[in-house]
Simulated assay, not measured.
Amino acid sequence: MSAEAPLRAPVADVADGPRPEAPPRRRGRTGRVLPALAFLVLLVAAWQVMAVLVDSLLVPGVGAVAAELVEVVADGSFVGELGATVLRVALGFALAAVVALPVGIAMGRSDLLRRFAEPAVLLGLTVPGLVWALLCVIWFGVGLANPVVAVALSSAPPLVLTTLQGVRSVDPDLLEMAHVYRFSRRVQLRRLWLPALAPALFAGARLGLSLGWKVVVLVEVFGMSSGVGYQLNNEFGSQNVAGVLAWTLLFAVVMAVLEYGVLQGLERRTGRWRKEVSV
């Protein structure tokens, strides 16, 4: 037996034993973008096929929609119209958050308050956005308060509900630990409540913003002289389906930028501690 044999045996034993699992590979930015791009390509192709098969002015092809989109962008007015709509949604959602977050936290901490306010939340969730839009047009006319209040009324119930669920899902042991160590309210808010409520808050923000976008368009259709909804109403009045689709696509681009550029980035940053703990 050669002198190298005793050295090979332990190596073989180690090699035959269980190997540690390799850490999962993180998908790069390309891996996250490609599925969305594939979906968009399929959607555009399906629309073009439908337009060719129907062969009607009511179903314009991709080329007609793209030409209308270029015309809207080249005109330059879309910046002001989109800006007006975004401002109304932002103000309405901010108003909803200021009211909904404290109410949701208080409902999560008090069973009596939860039972008292729960019917109002359920009622707010079941009322269609069209009703809020019509009521606010009647109540506030064509002023800024009209879309802001309509967005707040539609966004507040989901924010309250998700905040309530987030508060009730906080580990009681963490609350007891904070009480035993006498953490200040500021430390509890920063180190306990905000990280624990972050997933619920982001879920509520997505749902509230989606409802707010829909309601503000209805308000602009019925009672405003600017905004995306106003332009959609003009295109509808002239039976320009390509124009309606072009403004809808611009509206969708804003939503995509908000989701992928703002919300997901903030969510990854605030949820980084979860990944570190799981490792």
Rank of each mutant, 00 (worst) to 15 (best):
G61P: 10
V62H: 01
Q48K: 05
L101W: 12
V257I: 14
D171K: 02
A94H: 06
E235Q: 14
M224F: 07
A84M: 03
V277H: 08
S77M: 04
P195H: 06
L82V: 15
V98M: 09
V131Q: 01
V33T: 13
F236D: 15
M255H: 10
L53S: 10
S77F: 03
T85V: 10
D16F: 11
L232Y: 05
V254E: 02
L174D: 05
R114S: 14
A66D: 05
V170S: 07
A156C: 02
E267Q: 14
L7Y: 00
V253Y: 02
T270C: 10
V72D: 07
R269L: 12
V103G: 00
A256H: 09
A203Y: 06
L218C: 03
F78L: 12
V217M: 01
A196M: 07
P147A: 06
V253E: 02
V221L: 12
L159W: 04
A196G: 05
M50H: 11
I138W: 14
D173T: 06
A5N: 01
V98T: 09
A196K: 00
V149P: 11
K275A: 14
L91S: 11
S184K: 08
S278K: 12
V99G: 05
W47T: 13
P195C: 11
D75P: 03
A84L: 01
S278M: 08
M107R: 02
R27I: 14
S169D: 15
V72E: 09
G92R: 06
K275F: 11
F183V: 03
A5M: 05
L122R: 10
P128M: 03
